[in-house]
Design a protein around this nucleic acid. Sequence first.
DNA 1: CTGAAAGCGCTAACAT
DNA 2: ATGTTAGCGCTTTCAG
Lengths: 344, 344
Amino acid sequence: MDITINDVAREARVSAATVSYVLNQKKLDRITTGTRRRVLKAAKKLNYYPHASARGLASNKTQSIGVSINKIDFLSFLYFSVIIGGISRVVGDYDYNLHFTITDNKAKGSRKNLFFMRKVAERRLDGLIIIDQWIGDEDIMELKKRRFPFVLIDRDIPGEEINSVGTDNKEGILQATEHLIRLGHKRIGFILEVMKFYKIKEMLAGYRLALSRHGLKYERGLVKESAPNMEKAYKRTEELLRLPQRPTAIITSSDKIALQALTAIKDNGLRVPQDMALVGYNDEPLIAQLEPQLSTVKVPLQEMGKIATEILFNIINNGKMVKEPRILLKPELVVRKSSGGRIG
Amino acid sequence: MDITINDVAREARVSAATVSYVLNQKKLDRITTGTRRRVLKAAKKLNYYPHASARGLASNKTQSIGVSINKIDFLSFLYFSVIIGGISRVVGDYDYNLHFTITDNKAKGSRKNLFFMRKVAERRLDGLIIIDQWIGDEDIMELKKRRFPFVLIDRDIPGEEINSVGTDNKEGILQATEHLIRLGHKRIGFILEVMKFYKIKEMLAGYRLALSRHGLKYERGLVKESAPNMEKAYKRTEELLRLPQRPTAIITSSDKIALQALTAIKDNGLRVPQDMALVGYNDEPLIAQLEPQLSTVKVPLQEMGKIATEILFNIINNGKMVKEPRILLKPELVVRKSSGGRIG
DNA sequence: CTGAAAGCGCTAACAT
DNA sequence: ATGTTAGCGCTTTCAG
């Protein structure tokens, strides 16, 4: 059988409670350095590791947090991998475990099992980080109602006091659009992901703001939604290319979409940036190294992951929400080759 | 407070034991359909979810499996994302939870906490899938000695009876090399990851076999190790380019490395494939869409993930190891643009 | 076919 | 400063 706390207690000639105290490093030191040493030695000698379930049952803490990602988004793993990299670094520092929660919003009935709510209900998690645009606001509000600790990444529910860390995507797209306008572009296409996402709405606002600032008219026909599956981005790009008055530049809401767009543009015999300027979004690794190198908007992905995790642990351990619920980081325009030089 | 099994028992006017029986769907049906219905109704009405820790303590099962990935490999997330996609699909079907275990082989002392062994020792996991070339054979053998259920993906320990699902990488590189030889190449560079990995050794064997089959001499100077960090691949490529007798083609042990090589080749004013043919490995998503499109060896990544998970559940639930411990899938050469046409 | 009872390994009051 | 005593919520013999 496995080694239990009682084995350690016997070996160290103390009670199980004392072993528990020593191992849990209570603040109030009520233990002699002598006994402490004996306990530690015994634990090491027996190679003792506490049984997580037993501990969880008694303390109602699991030392685990979950990261919720949508099934659909598995394709955009570049974006997520960087965020998760940031998260896992902090998780390691705090000595917590990371649950991977893959949400399937299309799932019905028993398949809803995949959903993170299940893990919460089963008390498998002490907290949750949500990087999932697809989860409905209702579900997030449900979490809040239950007072379950969680933090949103790169999304928000306006008007609600919810912990989130995001990037100013309105500002990001504003910069990208203005960059193109300054290069002389007057007709700028915009291919975006699911329009109903808050994040995307913000981006659209940035796009429109840039246009109006420079006296350009907003044209509905220049904005294309590539939802629900990303492959649509290729088709949407072709739609833009076939417009009677074709745009001279295209902005996308992610580098991944930009990649599709790039392929579509080339396949249609046009050159980037000479015939069509292109700007991506996120500055995802690898993708930036396309030919031509992709101009994009750098989003501090890893930073978002780190900060969100720090906030989450703060909530879990100090019980209270943070003063400033919403953290908004700054995006940064990265000009490379694909946006080209001055035109017209 | 939360709803417990006793609340459900009271509501259904049965004992907690009966509730447990009904909810766990025991094979031996000892329950009246009447009581069963009452219990189910009560559980649904109260929105009952069993407490995972309590269940884990009593049954010594966690309904969780871990996936072990190395910290270093976070950069090659394209490769992993596809494998994990396969894993998560099966995990969802079996209604298990997925733990993300990020291993840090450089970590010493308490930081070793990040290591999956800790999770195993704490009984957080029912099983483990290892996609980690960096973990030492000793650690894997330790797992075996403990009779802890696990499956290896894309690696193996030759001579040991260990469950693993991989791809015939020797065959894969053999095909890639022969493809180039048939196009007329006689000096073929090979940039690979850490030489000591079993997987890489197999690849090297495939490379050498191809050469010898066609009467070509193996030259140590044409083989470059890009370890430990991948950015080295750029430098290694340049080393090949500066060789007195430069190769006319380069093979890499992953598409990710091929991407680095491609950049290096272009930066040095050479064209692919005209001046230098290039073949990648894995057929990772997105990367294949480079310019020029990358010839590569398709590895059934998602399939490996699926099969490994099926095997793991089989081990967990049926207690016994599989007859055939090692599953070896077939790679497939994918010829696109970067390997070019016939030369010489 | 169902219930009673014990116990999984740990934590946390409460005593001493 | 340490030990005693109850559980935490569930599963699982064992009786009936």
